[in-house]
Design a protein around this nucleic acid. Structure first.
Lengths: 333, 333
DNA sequence: TTGATGTTTGCGAACGTTCCCAGGGCGTGT
DNA sequence: ACACGCCCTGGGAACGTTCGCAAACATCAA
């Protein structure tokens, strides 16, 4: 069996209370006693039982993260970064995915909710009412979703898009196409439309389609029909579909057409040609979302998050263009 | 506060024991009573507190999975599949990564070990002694690692490699290159060497390098020097590096040279040209590893895994060739 | 009718921890 | 010398659940 606090106590010749304090409130116990306890604990290989701790009411020390799809290459770096951040703050992260179906999301929430101190819901499919109800039951942070009264992290593409528009403009492009493959109501199209208009670039929108490779393949064949010389895709995966089909059609990227992705996933850096894309920094978003949740937890428990400065319950993450080889000067004519 | 078993008990007019049994041993309680309890529980929104459960000694209902790198595109589909399998069997999965460093792996193990019923260690960096010690303390399954006496899942590439060799042979290739980018002692090279020899194909080995995109880029320039017409890379990522550099060198794939990857990650299916690769089925490996762990847990606890047939503590996962567009006939001469 | 057997239920201890409360020791100001 | 306060420590209840034990009741054979 695992070694308990009691064994450490008798080994150190103190009571269990003192051992407990030696770990949770080190300054309330005399340094010499404390050292004796720590030594005994180390020798016995003691570490506190999280189940007992959380039963007593101390929280679980775990954050829940529910993303649409773990296998979507956009998320793994975020998960990884959040793990790192959370561990640094003494938390563990429990990840699950919703497959973008409400039923699965509810199942995932049910599976993790009792094991975590709070939940980060990424692009939740739940109704606003349900989210409010959930937020009443436990600390909640939503990402890529706006629900009044619930702490939120939002990804803003506008900076990256503006940079993309600038680059295309500078390269002499005039007519562009946006491939909309968003299944959610919040399309990236509106923001793009505005940025391009501001620079006097014509932009046609294709779709909406599903955010799949084949969508890019399909849409690529339509680009020529729009007489466009640049394509901006809903994400890197779709952009790769475009790249693929352009090659099939005997067109050269970026000589004949420029292609821009969104997300800066691994895909973008290893494609041929490498993909110019709009980057959303996974570390930043993971850190901000994690911190926001911990802060929300702290404010409900009263227990203070260790050294986190107070932030607004609304956080915006920026983006920027990562120029690579898939964009270049517009063809002469 | 959350609703407890006591409230359900008084609502249903029975004792807490009976409520507990209604959930954990349904056949020990009279059907009518049981129904009354279930109704009350549903109305109150009761669900058992996992912390209390595991404190009492019932296990945590969680499996730990430690992989080298969550962001490596090979793992997300495996994680996803294991989550699905585990949930189906009433378990949750807690994932962490080791970054292939012993210190980080130990930290990850420390962080999760008290919260899980057992651990799956993927390509562990730990010494055999440490692993044995760990296995003595909790149920353990290792993947891609052989330690006598510890349940193991091994990935066998031989079938896929044989198919690859066959295909290259049939396409008339004679001289091939293998890019070794394994940091572990167990290189994929030996198995490959054997398969190719068996078909009378010449195989030169490059490396060992790090398993990175740039490795492929670098190695590609060496292929011509070996007078080879086919490349088999340590994994898809390295293969994409080869593809990338071949394009830079003005060589066409598969016209001038054929390229084969390993793993069949998302990368392989969306590259241009799409990548012929050796597939390891993520669902199979996740299922087998998960089941093996649950079984190991059951055999130590005495608690029987729900309806899993007994398997040997050694499981081998096969592989097969996924032919795509990066392989083709050898150049005429 | 009686004893044996089986089914359904309740009581209460135990899991490992935290934290409130109280008590003892010691220094300080009067 | 006394009272007061502070620092350090120990005792013990509580968290929500499971499970061994035994009581209550029904069934059935002799």
């Amino acid at each position: 069996m695992a070694v308990t606090i009691r064994e450490v106590a008798s080994a150190a010749g103190v009571s269990v209370s003192t051992v407990s304090r030696a770990f949770t409130a080190p300054d309330q116990v005399q340094p010499t006693t404390r050292q004796r306890i720590l030594d005994a604990a180390a020798k016995l290989g003691y570490s506190p039982n999280p189940a007992a701790r959380s039963l007593r009411g101390g929280g679980t020390g775990t954050l829940g993260l529910i993303v649409p799809d773990i296998a979507n290459p956009f998320f793994p770096p975020i998960i990884k970064a959040m793990q790192a951040r959370a561990r640094h703050l003494g938390y563990t992260v429990l990840v699950a995915d919703s497959d973008e179906r409400e039923a699965d999301e509810l199942a995932a929430i049910a599976a993790v909710s009792k094991r975590v101190d709070g939940l980060i819901l990424w692009a939740s499919t739940l109704t606003e009412d349900r989210l409010h109800e959930l937020a009443g039951r436990m600390p909640l942070v939503v990402v890529n979703r706006h629900v009044p009264g619930i702490p939120e992290v939002r990804i803003s593409l506008s900076a990256g898009i503006a940079q993309a528009a600038e680059q295309l403009k500078a390269y002499g492009h005039r007519r562009c196409v946006f491939i909309n493959a968003s299944r959610a109501e919040l399309s990236r199209g509106k923001s793009i439309q505005e940025s391009f208009e501001a620079l006097d670039l014509s932009l046609s929108e294709l779709g909406p389609y599903e955010p799949r490779f084949e969508t890019g393949v399909h849409a690529a064949t339509l680009v020529a029909a729009h007489d466009a010389t640049a394509v901006i895709a809903h994400n890197d995966l779709v952009a790769l579909g475009v790249l693929h089909q352009m090659a099939n059609l005997g067109m050269s990227v970026p000589r004949d057409v420029s292609v821009i992705g969104i997300d800066d996933t691994l895909l973008a850096s290893v494609s041929t040609p490498s993909l110019t894309t709009i980057r959303i920094d996974p570390e930043e978003i993971a850190t901000r979302a994690g911190d926001l949740l911990i802060e929300t937890i702290a404010s409900t428990t009263g227990r203070t998050g260790q050294g986190l400065e107070v932030t607004s319950p609304f956080v915006e993450i920026g983006s920027r263009l990562i120029p690579r080889a898939s964009t270049g000067p517009a063809p002469a004519h």
